[in-house]
Simulated assay, not measured.
Amino acid sequence: MLPVTALTKEEVENCPIRQVLSKVTGKWQMLILLVLEDGALRFGELKRTIGEVTQRVLTENLRGLERDGFLTRTVTPGPPVAVHYELTELGLDLMQRIKDLTLWAAANHDQIRQSRAAYDQA
């Protein structure tokens, strides 16, 4: 088993599983990484592609992913000023691993839905 037990604050702060996965496995972070797979996009393009995300939530998640080194933010002087977001090598590596999980989810979605329905009826 992977070492997931953390009994002290120091162990929590030094646990790579908690420190990394908690920053990249949220709904929005995963969608952002997948959307940026094919290349750089402007903020508005990201927002339109993802759909239901608010501007504030998208901004917060982009900042977090940039802070952790998964994407870069490039400002091109205008007019108009253009801001593009693009995956770094680290981000591309992570995106590939997340993509495997999303493909698994798509392949198993019907079975999971059936299991949920059976559980809810019981």
Results as ranks from 00 to 15, higher is better:
residue 105 A to Q: 11
residue 19 Q to V: 03
residue 65 L to D: 07
residue 95 M to F: 04
residue 44 G to P: 05
residue 80 P to D: 09
residue 74 T to A: 02
residue 91 G to H: 04
residue 12 V to S: 01
residue 35 V to I: 11
residue 103 L to M: 05
residue 31 L to C: 08
residue 80 P to W: 06
residue 24 V to I: 15
residue 7 L to M: 11
residue 44 G to S: 10
residue 114 Q to R: 15
residue 48 R to K: 14
residue 44 G to N: 11
residue 75 V to S: 04
residue 53 V to N: 01
residue 119 Y to F: 14
residue 109 H to S: 14
residue 29 Q to C: 03
residue 49 T to H: 04
residue 118 A to N: 10
residue 122 A to D: 10
residue 2 L to V: 10
residue 15 C to L: 10
residue 74 T to Q: 11
residue 2 L to N: 10
residue 42 R to T: 15
residue 49 T to F: 01
residue 26 G to F: 00
residue 41 L to V: 05
residue 47 K to A: 10
residue 114 Q to A: 14
residue 107 A to T: 04
residue 109 H to Q: 14
residue 63 R to G: 08
residue 29 Q to H: 09
residue 66 E to N: 09
residue 17 I to Q: 05
residue 86 E to F: 06
residue 13 E to A: 13
residue 58 L to A: 02
residue 26 G to Y: 02
residue 95 M to R: 14
residue 24 V to N: 00
residue 76 T to H: 15
residue 14 N to P: 05
residue 49 T to G: 06
residue 112 I to S: 01
residue 27 K to V: 12
residue 49 T to E: 15
residue 34 L to C: 08
residue 53 V to Q: 05
residue 104 W to T: 06
residue 83 V to F: 03
residue 109 H to Y: 14
residue 86 E to H: 02
residue 85 Y to I: 00
residue 13 E to C: 06
residue 22 S to H: 02
residue 80 P to Y: 09
residue 28 W to P: 04
residue 11 E to G: 00
residue 119 Y to T: 06
residue 76 T to S: 14
residue 17 I to R: 00
residue 89 E to M: 05
residue 60 E to V: 10
residue 97 R to V: 04
residue 82 A to C: 11
residue 19 Q to H: 03
residue 109 H to V: 13
residue 53 V to S: 07
residue 59 T to G: 00
residue 109 H to P: 00
residue 59 T to R: 11
residue 96 Q to P: 01
residue 102 T to I: 13
residue 36 L to E: 03
residue 73 R to E: 13
residue 57 V to W: 10
residue 22 S to Y: 07
residue 21 L to C: 10
residue 64 G to M: 09
residue 23 K to T: 07
residue 86 E to Y: 01
residue 48 R to W: 00
residue 5 T to M: 11
residue 66 E to S: 09
residue 94 L to K: 02
residue 64 G to S: 11
residue 35 V to L: 07
residue 12 V to E: 09
residue 26 G to I: 06
residue 94 L to W: 04
residue 82 A to F: 12
residue 10 E to K: 09
residue 119 Y to L: 14
residue 9 K to E: 14
residue 66 E to T: 11
residue 117 A to T: 14
residue 13 E to W: 01
residue 34 L to H: 08
residue 71 L to N: 01
residue 71 L to S: 07
residue 44 G to C: 04
residue 64 G to C: 01
residue 115 S to W: 08
residue 70 F to G: 05
residue 49 T to K: 15
residue 97 R to Y: 02
residue 27 K to R: 13
residue 119 Y to G: 02
residue 71 L to W: 02
residue 81 V to F: 04
residue 82 A to N: 13
residue 122 A to R: 15
residue 10 E to M: 01
residue 108 N to T: 13
residue 84 H to C: 08
residue 79 P to E: 10
residue 63 R to L: 12
residue 59 T to S: 12
residue 65 L to Q: 01
residue 2 L to Y: 07
residue 111 Q to D: 14
residue 23 K to G: 05
residue 39 G to Q: 05
residue 28 W to M: 14
residue 68 D to T: 12
residue 82 A to L: 15
residue 42 R to W: 07
